[in-house]
Design a protein around this nucleic acid. Sequence first.
DNA 1: GAATAATTTTAGATTAATCTAAAAATTAGT
DNA 2: ACTAATTTTTAGATTAATCTAAAATTATTC
Lengths: 219, 219
Amino acid sequence: MTSFTEENYLKVIYKLSSETDSEVSTNAVAEQTQTKAASVSDMLRKLSEKKLVSYQKYQGVRLTAEGEKVALKVIRKHRLWEVFLVEKLGFNWDEVHDIAEELEHIDSEKLVAKLDEYLGFPSFDPHGDPIPDHHGVMPAQTYLTLAEIKKGEEVIMMGVSEHSSAFLQYLDKINLVLGTSIEVLDINNFDKSLQIILSQENSLFITHEVSKNILVKVQ
Amino acid sequence: MTSFTEENYLKVIYKLSSETDSEVSTNAVAEQTQTKAASVSDMLRKLSEKKLVSYQKYQGVRLTAEGEKVALKVIRKHRLWEVFLVEKLGFNWDEVHDIAEELEHIDSEKLVAKLDEYLGFPSFDPHGDPIPDHHGVMPAQTYLTLAEIKKGEEVIMMGVSEHSSAFLQYLDKINLVLGTSIEVLDINNFDKSLQIILSQENSLFITHEVSKNILVKVQ
DNA sequence: GAATAATTTTAGATTAATCTAAAAATTAGT
DNA sequence: ACTAATTTTTAGATTAATCTAAAATTATTC
């Protein structure tokens, strides 16, 4: 069995190694788990003994196939619960992360299966993140960031890569929500800020930093 | 803040002291929490320091008003989640206890409020147990056990006082579920076993032990 | 390519929750 | 009311997860 704490480490290692696609450093894990490097070292040794990660001292860490399986289960549960909270209970998308961080550790295969069915087998969570299926397979997701879109193109907002409440509330305020069509009217060469039109109606400016965190698909 | 473990102790103390309406013994708590008396002593000292219980060495323990408030919140969450699992996800009533034991510790006032609303503010869980409202007030519940009903009387099944999977599955098998009408046809003087008629149709025998664990109301 | 800086690991403690074994207090039996 | 039985508490350990401080390793820079 994996503890609450071990599951969190595996989840963090999964996230970091899928971002960089290489070994994850002790410090990076410490930062994400809000612990100290010394604590991470200890835990990596322990997870390594359990064959959930492959770990060479001083050389960073990777998930084993088994560890990835556990991480994907936790991520699956997290995202399914987020869908539940938003779709069924009426939470806003900026309110659900912390609650899902707790719910993701509830241990019942049958519960996950029934929840999945109840929600209609969703492929994406309220932030547009893909939900692994019960085999741990992630739905294909080939999005671009809004920062990569050329002037004149029109795209649809499909997700975010920053999940902070502050960012999500800002997007709500400017009516930039999942499914919105976005046309890039103009790109400022100096600071890469954008002028965009939402739903062929509202024109507004956003910074490059914001555009980098918005995931879109070309129509 | 109260830990997962502390919450379980408070819940057990609540349950035991509402059964006997007096101080709860260390051994009784140990039995319910599946721990040893020595561990209970330690925990009672700790809960006492936190003012969640009033505890005199060797004299048993009671909840303080504050401790009862915490216990009732946990019980409320447990029972609401059980309703969710049965009503929304389609679980059987004998499958939900262990899952609700985990869900009851999820910490979000807003989640509880929204879940309650989503479920239509239920007053009783799938076993007929009353659900405290958001002030911690239990709905009035003045049931008798089937063992107390006289020959010839007809009652409605409202709940159970034994929650084991084995017992609940047995009730399912004999079609004795919440809401069923039960007429006491005959009472065996020797062993107090009963002959009953369910829904004015099926006649069957049940033991005294079973009848003691079935809660009913007179029509 | 040595010296310095940064990162990572180890050593030794701490906290929460548990245990066993022994001591202390309470309860029961005659 | 005194002894015996039972219950409860204390003492001392253990495990999981964390920490700080010091040591070891790796990376960087001149």
